[in-house]
Design a binder for these strands. Structure first.
Lengths: 242, 242
DNA sequence: TGTATCATTTATGTATACAATTTTATTAAA
DNA sequence: TTTAATAAAATTGTATACATAAATGATACA
């Protein structure tokens, strides 16, 4: 409703001055860093350190961290500060389940509502994404992949749903950072293009089917057997006291 | 994820000390006041006034207002403070649409997952709700009606979805406050009981059908023809420079 | 050497002071 | 009386100071 989280970094940015003041950039900077996997799940986010980095007081940092916590990408524990969220296996499952529901609905709405202009924008986003991956800029590519899904939500035209999707996409990125199997590269842009073909053809069934397969592929990239990158000591030593 | 919004007021409360400090109660107090329609859409929420009322500094009030804004029940405009949100007709439509989607999914999951104990709790909630309405405590009744739907989401067992549902239910309450037709009483508890019957019988189709009818009835109570209680001057005088 | 207790340091939680902006009131002119 | 310009008041935005709790390090003791 109020705060958006468009990218604030590198590739293809527009550099247009936003109405929002500095705090917007702070939010976006941290947000992007998490989505590009430059900040790992579990990393401590010190208020004072961030304040120095961005040249503002803790007051501002505190507010931004709260926003990020709302979004689900940051976790705040009372008296112990904030850190990049590290969703548990169960949380990850629920997030991915919810995302399937939302993506299904969004796909349906996109087929109904997408204009030519919007389709063109979506095509362009896929190109940008592909360029990143071929250039080896994995982090930015991952973020752009997420922004593609967010753009779909916008095209669907339901603001509450878009907000929810933003949260789900962000958290999916965190889940990938934490549970991704080694030696697997993201080639989602190909699937993104196929999806847009189905959308352009107004083929709802096919579009949904492709989107669900896309979700399957995300699942397949994950390994929920071990408790993720950020070592969960409780899980690791769960056998100790029987 | 972190902050819940269980009732903090009157009927059937438990008075159990929560772990959270005073700020939890502040959030809940404002939240409940809005959901019980004691605070009307558009009402200014002054930081200083609220600070005095709750005996805390603006720092705390600010944080709570931000939380409420994220929930969608409060609207914050830069340099101009916070007010109870007054969703436009279009926003209302989108919220109700999103809610249908979520309620459908939740209903499906509830039929699958609900335990006997949970069903009993749900039954009890409907009794409480009914008692309120027969006693003439409309505000509390409206809130409990919302909490019933929230409880369903909890039973469904998907945390992200529950969070989204909380936001949608709250905003629905606001929409009703703003667009409800005159002289129509809420008798949702009856439909709630029928829904629970279908859930108990594990009849997914019927449960969903009942839930969708329930949503229809909410729609029918609303009048989107005029722009709601809080006067929208732009809409009223749209013909002037037209 | 290992453990427990206490002191120190560090970080977060809240209140307050001041700056910037908006709103309201006042005054002057048409 | 209405409008415009200006001054005053009130409200929000941000930084900082202090209070409180957690994490760390030091010391005493077994």
């Amino acid at each position: 409703m109020s705060k958006q989280a468009d990218s604030a970094t590198s590739t293809n940015r527009a550099f247009k001055k936003r109405t929002g003041s500095k705090s917007d950039t702070i939010y976006a900077h941290i947000f992007d860093a998490i989505l590009e996997h430059r900040l790992s799940p579990g990393t401590k986010l010190s208020e004072e350190a961030l304040g120095e980095i961005f040249g503002v007081s803790r007051t501002i940092i505190r507010r931004e961290l709260l926003q990020l916590a709302h979004e689900g990408v940051v976790s705040i524990r009372p008296n112990r500060g904030a850190m990049v969220a590290n969703p548990s296996v169960e949380e990850a499952r629920q997030i991915l389940y919810a995302r399937r529901l939302v993506e299904r609905t969004i796909t349906e709405l996109v087929v109904q509502n997408a204009t030519e202009k919007q389709l063109a924008e979506l095509r362009k986003m896929v190109v940008d994404e592909q360029n990143c991956f071929t250039r080896g800029e994995m982090g930015t590519g991952i973020r752009l992949s997420g922004e593609f899904h967010l753009k779909l939500a916008e095209v669907a035209g339901n603001a509450p749903l878009t907000g929810f999707q933003r949260s789900l996409v962000s958290q999916t990125s965190l889940i990938i950072a934490q549970y991704e199997k080694v030696t697997r590269s993201h080639c989602s842009f190909d699937e993104h293009n196929q999806l847009l073909d189905a959308v352009a053809a107004k083929d709802t069934e096919k579009a949904i089917s492709l989107m669900m397969r896309h979700m399957d592929h995300i699942d397949e990239k994950l390994n929920f057997d071990d408790e993720g990158a950020t070592d969960d000591l409780h899980a690791i030593f769960s056998h100790v006291r029987g």
